[in-house]
């Protein structure tokens, strides 16, 4: 225990408070072992929260309660209420949160609390597109983005931590640049790919994309698939994007390029095999082909049986390939897909 810690029951300014001790529970149910400091502090905290006392000392004890137990959700709710009621300095609160984040990086409430404080510091006008914040607020937002970035460098796969910030303050251009640098750094960073989708659609469920944007994304994804054909992220990204915004592109644009890649005999620097060979070892390549065959059969439904037979043949071969050698852990699934073609 820190040496200059004065227990709450020995503090002059807390003398009027009757602590609410927890009665001894008659039985122990998932009880958690704790010490005297925790017990005393929580007894005083309980008393103050039940009094609903909105005071300076209440503000201070929330600090101790959260420090001792950062998962104490009621303490966070109470602190936010006090922040607004006592008109506390938001910048100081952010500094306090910076310190808390070092010791408790995984506490959900901490990040939500941060979000509330930044929102209070930098309100945006409704219906305004951009630039509704003044230069000082811009600085706060930039610092926040930087902090969140720093806070997750140990775990570079939590980009959604600042999605709200990007969306609220329309930081799309710089976020796209950042995402590209992360994908360049690690082409398998799925969190970065997800963020690319978020930026492209500006976090709108009903976004519309122009066809030149779509074609650029095909080109971009193909470039990354070429680097590592077994990497799930760009496959999911481009197929998902096209399914939603332009399904026709899957057969007319994407499929021919994928075919070219599968026959590409050049190799990348540092890769032992030509791109085409790596493609043919990728489960995503074969799974993509199966989906294509399925679409083509659907289109051909009433047409000649000779084409149909040919497609069925290719499709069953692709299913066998996956079940038997490329992706045997999912053999049961690929066999099931195969049945659909044979029947």
């Amino acid at each position: 225990m820190d040496e200059d810690w004065v227990p709450y029951n020995q503090r002059e300014e807390w003398k009027d408070i009757i602590p609410m001790n927890l009665p001894q529970e008659p039985q122990s149910v998932c009880a958690i072992a704790y010490d005297e400091k925790y017990a005393t502090t929580m007894s005083y905290f309980r008393a103050i929260i039940h009094k609903k006392e909105l005071s300076e000392r209440a503000w201070e004890i929330t600090n101790d309660a959260i420090m001792l137990n950062s998962g104490h959700y009621t303490a966070w709710v109470f602190r936010l209420k006090l922040f607004h009621e006592l008109k506390k300095d938001g910048k100081k609160e952010i500094e306090w949160l910076n310190e808390m984040a070092e010791d408790h990086p995984k506490t959900y409430q901490l990040w939500h609390h941060r979000e509330s404080i930044i929102k209070a510091l930098c309100p945006v006008k409704q219906d305004a597109e951009t630039d509704t914040v003044n230069p000082e607020q811009k600085e706060i937002i930039a610092a926040e983005l930087w902090f969140l970035l720093e806070a997750i460098t140990a775990d570079p796969k939590n980009f959604h931590a600042w999605q709200w910030l990007v969306k609220r303050y329309a930081l799309w251009t710089q976020e796209l640049q950042f995402v590209e640098s992360r994908i360049n750094n690690d082409v398998r960073n799925n969190s970065a790919w997800n963020q690319r989708y978020f930026v492209l659609t500006k976090g709108q469920g009903d976004a519309k994309l122009d066809s030149d944007v779509i074609e650029k994304e095909i080109e971009y994804s193909i470039d990354k698939i070429r680097l590592a054909p077994s990497n799930e992220s760009p496959w999911s990204y481009i197929c998902g994007l096209l399914r939603k915004f332009s399904p026709a592109h899957i057969t007319t644009k994407l499929h021919p390029i994928i075919n070219d890649l599968a026959n590409d005999e050049s190799a990348h620097e540092g890769q032992a095999m030509p791109v085409g060979q790596l493609m043919k070892k990728s489960p995503h390549y074969w799974a993509f082909l199966i989906d294509i065959y399925e679409i083509r059969l659907e289109d051909l439904k009433l047409e000649s049986s000779r084409d149909t037979a040919e497609i069925v043949q290719s499709a069953t071969e692709a299913c066998d390939m996956l079940a038997q050698s490329i992706d045997p852990i999912r053999f049961a699934y690929w066999n099931y897909r195969k049945q659909a073609f044979v029947l």
């Binding site: 958690i32 072992a33 137990n69 998962g71």
Partner: peptide
């Protein structure tokens, strides 16, 4: 054992004892 008593490092789960109980 866990349904009875948990060590100190579970302290941040104190607000979620019911959930720990459900798992046990």
């Amino acid at each position: 054992r866990c349904a009875d008593l948990l060590p100190h490092h579970f302290l941040e789960m104190e607000a979620s004892r019911m959930t720990l109980l459900q798992f046990c």
